[in-house]
């Protein structure tokens, strides 16, 4: 088993395939004391996932379901995953969420174009970890970042969340709590175990009280970045 530090948690993993091994490299860290999370799959489990999803390779199966295991256990540490592209700018994290193909990575790539890649840093392009530390929300890079490989091992305070959809013109508005709630639950991994569901509910409850959630209709343009940045950075 190898030792990693992910989202300030001691994690044990045992990557068999190259994809997981490579993605996790930046998170290798010898830790003292006990592990918080063990995320490993047996060969049999990897093969079972592969049988169910034959269009995925064995190494993709290992990568995806190791991530799923990590995120499920994250709920025990005041943390959750949001299916979003997370970008850091001026010490604040902005999350852009959407269903697959919804334009979240495209939008954060435009942030990088507008502000520069050294200023606008992709924390995680697909599945950032969010945690409550000392009563505040933080966004963490993790090795589990979907197809694009874009993730950075940093911790940034969460400023705002935005749900993105394609539109003919650019506009942004604050979402009501009930709208935001539905979207957040649709874009996270819902636990089956009731104790973990209670954790998720308490995190989302605090999130809706503390963090503004927006709805962005946008084109693929730098003007769209101005629309989102101006509203969300206030």
């Amino acid at each position: 088993m190898k030792q990693y530090k992910i989202a300030e948690l001691n994690v044990l993993m045992n990557p068999k395939y190259n994809k997981l091994l490579k993605h996790c490299e930046a998170y290798l860290s010898d830790f003292e004391g006990k592990e918080n999370i063990v995320a490993t799959l047996t060969d049999k489990e990897i093969e079972d996932h592969n049988e169910k999803w034959p269009n995925l390779t064995l190494e993709e199966c290992e990568y995806i379901w190791t991530g799923a295991s990590f995120y499920e256990q994250l709920l025990d540490f005041q943390g959750m995953v949001l299916h979003a592209s997370a970008v850091a700018l001026d010490g604040n994290a902005y999350l852009f969420s959407a269903p697959c193909g919804g334009g979240k990575s495209t939008h954060t790539a435009l942030w990088q174009k507008k502000f520069g890649k050294d200023q606008a840093i992709i924390i995680n392009d697909d599945k950032p970890a969010l945690r409550i530390i000392d009563n505040k929300f933080y966004v963490y890079g993790t090795p589990f970042s979907g197809k694009t490989d874009k993730n950075t091992n940093i911790k940034v305070p969460l400023k705002a969340i935005c749900f993105v959809e394609h539109a003919p013109t650019n506009s942004i508005r604050k979402m009501s709590a009930v709208e935001a709630l539905m979207q957040i639950f649709n874009q996270t991994i819902r636990p089956v175990e009731s104790k973990k569901m209670e954790s998720l509910i308490s995190i989302v409850d605090k999130m809706l009280k503390d963090i503004p959630v927006y709805k962005l209709g946008c084109t693929i343009s730098l003007e769209a970045v101005e629309t989102s940045y101006n509203a969300m950075s206030k």
């Binding site: 709590a177 709630l181 639950f185 636990p191 089956v192 175990e193 509910i201 989302v204 809706l208």
Partner: peptide, 19 residues
């Protein structure tokens, strides 16, 4: 099925086999 209050909203979600 559990009913919980999330930021002022009454929300029902499923857990366990009900999922």
């Amino acid at each position: 099925f559990m009913l919980r209050n999330i930021a002022g909203n009454n929300v029902v979600v499923a857990v366990g086999k009900a999922t």
